[in-house]
């Protein structure tokens, strides 16, 4: 796979083309841009949420469905007070070597709590939000899961959101 201007510096070049060749049509391509929403208050006064596609979930919740050939379109709430020991990962499609030893490399829950305690961030929403990135129906994802999480994020009083698409 040749590197293009769009993946310069990427550790895994040509990822979009590779995934799209293996799973035709599963990758999203948008033409339009969404207008920027603005912070109503400085970050130090804003309540932040975190959204992850890493399959992180509280132990004891129904494991994400990693077997289904079309994917899992549900999400889990992860209490922002949870410790890494309270959480586990159910996901097969990205390397978890680092996360297995320190969850913060993909789900920086302890770093976010520190930054909130220090006042860099105004606060955290009661829940963070988690799902698995593997799905074969991006239209359904956009129609259902994306809207459900966006509604839950708003209902949780988020004033800003950090996302980490795995």
């Amino acid at each position: 796979m040749t590197a293009t201007s769009s993946d310069r510096g990427q550790l895994r070049p040509g990822l979009w083309a590779t995934v799209n060749e293996r799973y035709p049509g599963s990758m999203i391509t948008k033409r339009d841009l969404v207008p920027l929403a603005r912070l109503a208050k400085p970050l130090a006064e804003s309540r932040l949420t975190f959204v992850s596609t890493a399959g992180v979930q509280p132990k004891g919740t129904l494991p994400f469905d990693v077997a289904h050939p079309v994917g899992d379109y549900s999400f889990r709430r992860v209490p922002s007070t949870a410790t890494p020991a309270d959480l586990e990962i159910h996901q097969l499609k990205y390397p978890t070597a680092g996360a297995n030893r320190d969850l913060n490399v993909i789900f920086p829950i302890e770093r976010l709590r520190e930054l909130a305690a220090e006042g860099t961030i105004g606060g955290l929403t009661p829940s963070f939000f988690s799902f698995i990135g593997y799905n074969m129906d991006p239209e359904r994802l956009e129609r259902t899961l994306a809207e459900e999480i966006a509604a839950a994020v708003a209902a949780d009083g988020a004033e800003a959101a950090l996302l980490a698409p795995a």
Binding site: R12, G14, T29, V34, P35, A37, A146, A150, A164, P165
Partner: peptide, 23 residues
Amino acid sequence: AIERRGIPTVSVTVARDVTEHAK
């Protein structure tokens, strides 16, 4: 979807090409 609800968002990506497509 979150940004459209008036909540500013930012993502961290390791795949620039995927992000350029998803905008």
